[in-house]
Design a protein around this nucleic acid. Structure first.
Lengths: 341, 341
DNA sequence: CGCTTTTTCTAAATCGTTTTCTCGCATCCG
DNA sequence: CGGATGCGAGAAAACGATTTAGAAAAAGCG
């Protein structure tokens, strides 16, 4: 790899100056087309590949986007919902000539803070996919002036791409309500904007329809924590006044809850109904298939990518604090049945 | 971000030369400890962050590792098995001061070939997680002299970290056999080294135990292609001489096959048994839980990371073509029952 | 005190680009 | 024919770090 050819080598081969070669490669006006063609031909023959470090050093951009993907549970890439978003984001930015690099989120000793990592690597922008938004370090980054797009968390000054938690959850509740359910238990995730949005939807909906919300119908379960979900499922099933439907914070816990019910010979949806959230693959695989909200991860990724790059390439044009809401849709599935009077 | 402080600024502030500052920061011997401390203090006060591009340009390393993650189906990061490996790999290399960047695998117009991307970005090494190994482009990269570690594919000249496909599949078969199964159908993935290793294990095992392998017991299904798996499941269930157990190429297709059986009121494992492969989360969530091979993705990721960095930092020490075999283990689950005579 | 040796620092070259400035030369026009 | 215009090319100065060679200062030593 050491012997890579540089502009200087091409200049020598063509008997021109380095600057002329550079201009020819960048298609600048002040090189005659004859020379341009010759230089490019020679460059091709010599297998010239530009040196990213050199041009990034000289230019003021790197075409590299940093990605912060960190959450308590350390699920990282194995969190299917975020993986889907990231996949779509990656494709989008790649098409526009960018590359993505993960910020170091570990707690190794010599590690830089997010902001320092960004200064060090000169990322053109940053995508924050999943993180503890109250982390000191993250706030330091967000208050710097590097373009940032955040998924599912509203921040003044930054673009936010968010699923329509409130609206989607209402749609799901409407779906459940329309099938006759009135006693609806709700297991929500850990406190976060996403969780709060959905919880508001639940409380509003129940209130508007004059439905009771007893304490034993509302629980907290960390997202994707199947152990906890299983325990809660058992608790709910044991209630004297059992709900007719349980809403889970995500498809993984919902599928797991379903498993518990099957083990306990509680039939779904005949004896009890349940619904998940996200629309990951498992939702369509278990039987009965999960009723869930299918989030439009492709759209989220595309919009995040485009907004971020627009912010980078056309600073000041996008309005500050812009929030893009992406609607999900109810995936009917089979896990919510009709309640007969 | 523009106003970042450089060595020159520190030099000015300390009234010393740039080179002295550089040496102080790199803890070189020929700077008095008094000056060293002063310079470092000032650097800290001025919030100095080195410029990655500049040092990478000057040095011969970037501490950046390229990752090639590409497969036909475009599942990319959403492929849980690979996501788990990547997660573990990322943590490992981060701890050793490296960062990972994805190679552009799209087919956008101006895209560079893998080799050119590596030359351009000056990656210190490359991890090939999942790719079409017969792709012209990949071969071009592999024949260059950049350190490469490949997952689950043996290549002379390169380090390979591989699950013990042959051994693991034999263990799974033994588990099934021990429970009385003699008529075992086998659905294998698309042709690849992984597939071939497992298929050999199946054929060898069946042969050694004098078990018949009728044509209707062996099928091909692309990994994670649930539609195809569902169709095959129905086909197998309809066979006049139905097998007592079906082995699927992965947990996703197995879980999906299980769903089909449930829909058809075929009881698992009473009427028929089945097993998956990989040990992803879904395996422990469906009921009955899947009998499967739990691959040690954490170990695979750690070893891949360490081997790659060793190759980078101590070239020539690792022997060429080294293959590391990582054993998986049988996860008993509940989807394989005992066959009674 | 002179000489060598060691310590501590600086100047300058380098990595491979990009860009600005200048200059030579041809062309055009009055 | 002389001055303005424009084109094409090169020289040189960046970008920010590292490193080498060498100079100045300090220390050791007979």
């Amino acid at each position: 790899m050491g012997e890579s050819v540089s502009l200087k080598d091409i200049a020598k081969a063509c008997n021109v100056s380095v600057s002329t070669v550079s201009k020819a490669m960048n298609d600048r006006a002040d090189v005659s087309s004859a020379k341009k063609e010759e230089i490019r031909r020679v460059a091709r023959e010599m297998n010239y590949v530009p040196n990213y470090m050199a041009s990034a050093l000289k230019n003021q951009y790197t075409r590299n986007i940093g990605v912060i993907l960190a959450e308590e549970a350390g699920q990282g890439l194995t969190h299917e919902h975020f993986a889907k978003i990231l996949n779509s984001f990656k494709d989008t930015v790649e098409e526009r000539g960018y590359v993505i690099t993960f910020l170091n989120t570990s707690n190794s000793p010599g590690r830089f803070s997010y902001r320092k990592q960004c200064q060090y690597m000169k990322y053109d922008g940053v995508l924050v996919v999943c993180a503890d938004y109250h982390q000191q370090e993250l706030e330091e980054l967000l208050s710097s002036n590097i373009p940032v797009v955040v998924i599912d968390h509203t921040l003044k000054k930054h673009v936010n791409i968010a699923s329509n938690q409130y609206g989607d959850m209402r749609r799901l509740l409407q779906f459940v309500f329309d099938r006759g359910h009135r006693k609806i238990a709700y297991i929500h995730g850990k406190n976060s904007e996403v969780t709060r949005g959905r919880l508001s939807a639940y409380l509003d909906f129940m209130h508007e329809h004059h439905l009771p919300v007893p304490k034993e119908y509302v629980y907290t379960c960390p997202y994707r924590d199947v152990e906890r979900a299983n325990a809660l499922t058992k608790a709910v099933l044991a209630l004297p006044d059992r709900p007719t439907c349980i809403l889970y914070p995500d498809d993984l816990t919902a599928a797991s809850g379903l498993g518990v019910m099957q083990e306990m010979k509680v039939r779904v949806p005949e004896d009890i109904s349940l619904a998940g959230y996200d629309g990951i693959r498992i939702a369509g695989i278990v039987r009965p298939r999960l009723t869930t909200i299918r989030q439009d991860t492709v759209s989220i990724g595309i919009q995040a990518g485009n907004k971020l790059i627009n912010r980078i390439e056309f600073p000041g044009i996008e309005t500050d604090g812009e929030t893009v809401i992406v609607d999900g849709m109810v995936e009917p599935g089979e896990s919510v049945g009709v309640v007969r009077k």
